[in-house]
Simulated scan of single mutants.
Amino acid sequence: MLKVIAACGNGMGSSQIIKMKIAKIFKKLEIEVSIHHTSIGEAKSQASGYDVVFCSEALKSNFKRAEDGGTIVIGLKNLLSEQEIEQKIVEHIVNKK
């Protein structure tokens, strides 16, 4: 099971939306996941304990340390685009297995 964290500025609205969207796509792709959503500050300190981090493209640089440690960090340009989310999951997770 993949441990996934969805992060946004305050850990409220956007991260909850990302969580719902990525859960839908992982289910479609039949990948078992555990998803947590939180603020960028909390996610930054916890990211190395997760397999994958989802955030907006603008916040991706906050996770350089986790990425260097092997965590997959996926930046999204459009947080509402299931097509973009699916494409990035396939590119960064499915095709890397």
Rank of each mutant, 00 (worst) to 15 (best):
S61T: 11
K77F: 13
A43H: 01
A47F: 02
K21G: 07
K24S: 13
C55P: 02
F63A: 00
K44S: 11
Q87I: 08
D68Q: 15
E67Y: 08
K64D: 10
N78F: 12
L80I: 11
M20I: 09
V94I: 14
I31Y: 04
I85D: 00
V94M: 07
G49Q: 11
N62S: 13
G49L: 10
I72H: 08
S56Q: 15
F26Y: 06
G75A: 03
G75K: 03
K88A: 05
L29F: 04
V94S: 05
A43K: 02
T38L: 03
I89R: 01
V33K: 01
E32H: 10
Q83D: 14
S14R: 10
H36Y: 12
Y50M: 07
A7E: 03
K96G: 06
E32K: 11
K19D: 09
C8S: 05
I18T: 10
Q87V: 11
V52C: 01
G13D: 11
S81H: 06
E84R: 05
A58Q: 12
I31N: 01
K19V: 07
A23N: 14
S48I: 14
K44Y: 10
I89E: 00
V94E: 05
S45H: 12
K77H: 12
K88Q: 13
K3F: 09
N95W: 09
V53P: 00
Y50L: 02
S61H: 14
T38I: 05
N10R: 13
V90Y: 09
R65K: 15
E82K: 14
K97G: 14
F63M: 01
K27Y: 09
A66R: 03
D51G: 07
V90N: 08
K3E: 10
S48Y: 12
V73A: 01
I31F: 06
S45P: 05
N62V: 06
C55V: 08
C8K: 02
N10L: 14
K21A: 13
F63Y: 08
Y50I: 03
V73Y: 04
C55W: 06
K44V: 10
I40D: 13
K96N: 10
E84G: 05
G70S: 07
A43P: 00
F63R: 03
Y50D: 01
K24M: 07
I89G: 00
F54T: 04
V90S: 05
M1L: 12
K19M: 13
N78D: 15
G75Q: 02
E30R: 13
V4L: 03
L80H: 13
I18Q: 02
E57Q: 15
I25K: 08
M12N: 12
S34R: 12
L79F: 14
I72V: 15
